[in-house]
Design a protein around this nucleic acid. Structure first.
Ligand SMILES: [Mn+2]
Ligand SMILES: [Mn+2]
Ligand SMILES: [Mn+2]
Ligand SMILES: [Mn+2]
Lengths: 218, 218
DNA sequence: AAATAATTTTAGATTAGTCTAAAAATATTT
DNA sequence: AAATATTTTTAGACTAATCTAAAATTATTT
């Protein structure tokens, strides 16, 4: 039996390990979990005893295969629920995350398999993130940061890195959504801002924005 | 802020109060919650401090208006999720309760309002129980126990009292469902069993079964 | 009305998850 | 290589929810 809190720690460790190096340190987990390092140490010990993480004192933690399996399953549930909220319940992409944080912990294989079927087995969530299948396999997609795109080329918007409500609303207000076809007009060396064109519009986005949008060549 | 456990206690008190007298005693709650009387006392004190129940030592508990509001809201969520599971995710009526027990605690007004809309504002759940609206109003339906139905009359099956998987599967195996039109053929005084007819079938049901099926005259 | 039985509450522990403050280990600077 | 800074762990305490065992209260019998 695994608790909701344990699931959240495992998910946090998984995300921290995939965005960078492999062993995850205590403070990083504490930051993500909005808790103190001492609480993290306690939890890591517990997860270690339950064989979800490998842990040596002062050396950080890594997920075991079991731990990864748990993490991927929660991510699958989280992203399927996000699709459900957008496709069936008229949520916008900046509203889904919070509710999905709770729904992801509901334990029922039938529930999630049927939800998957209802949604017609979506491959990506509303933010462009891949949804692992039942066996935990991700459909990897070729994507590059807008900040690294070539001037003159045309791309399709396929994802975002920052999924905060603030950023997503910024994109909404500028009519940028998943699927939007974008041409890179100019890369400004001075501040790394990028001028982009799409649907009769031309706008300049800051480097910060450019680093948080993922594109795929078309 | 209200915890999941508090919500479950409030719901238990609500159900116990509606099935019978008005003040609910400690042992009854303990039985429903599958816990010990001493734990119930602690929780009642807590709920009393939070003004969800009125409580005097040794005198049992009653829900305040606030407590009732919480209970009805959880029941609304529980039943809407049950409808969702049956209508959209191919669950059978004996599979929904357990999952709904968890889903009912997800806190999001938009979630539940949109779910209500997706399901086209159902008035009853898969077991024939009424679903309160946003304001907490139940649509009361006229119904009588099969055990109290008149011989010779014809009725529609509109609900069940026992919602255990065992009982619902018994009904499935005998092709009795909500909406089934049933004629009372004979009431056997010896053991209070009832011979009923529906869809070219005649069967005899025990008193126990007859007390757990609700009918409406047609 | 006493005695007995049943119910409810209290007292004291336990577990999960958290915290603060201090100690220990590791990493970085000088 | 010492000194200093940072990170991590330990120690001890707290809250929520639970338990067992004993005490207090209420209900039922005799
Ligand atoms: Mn999310
Ligand atoms: Mn997402
Ligand atoms: Mn139910
Ligand atoms: Mn029901």
């Amino acid at each position: 039996m695994i608790t909701l809190t344990e699931e959240n720690y495992i998910k946090a460790i998984y995300h921290l390990a995939s965005n960078g190096e492999k062993t995850v340190n205590t403070n990083a987990i504490a930051a993500v979990m909005q808790t103190k390092a001492s609480s993290v140490t306690d939890m890591i010990k517990k997860l270690s005893e339950k064989s979800y993480v490998d842990y040596k004192k002062y050396q950080g933690a890594t997920l075991t295969d079991d731990g990864k399996r748990v993490a991927v399953n929660i991510i699958r549930k989280h992203r399927l629920w996000e699709v459900f909220l957008v496709e069936k319940l008229n949520f916008s992409w900046d509203e889904v995350h919070e509710v999905a944080e709770h729904l992801e912990h509901i334990k029922s294989d039938k529930l999630i398999d049927e939800l998957d079927a209802l949604l017609e087995f979506p491959s990506h969530d509303p933010h462009g993130d891949p949804i692992p299948d039942k066996e935990g396999n991700f459909k990897h997609i070729e994507k590059i940061m807008l900040a690294k795109a070539e001037a003159g080329s045309t791309y399709k918007c396929v994802g975002v890195d920052d999924t905060s409500s603030k950023f997503l609303k910024y994109l909404d207000s500028n009519s940028i959504a998943l699927g939007t076809i974008i041409t890179i007009k100019h890369k400004e060396p001075y501040d790394n801002s990028v001028k982009i064109a799409f649907e009769n519009t031309e706008i300049v986005v800051s480097q910060n924005v450019a680093k948080n949008i993922y594109l795929k060549k078309v």
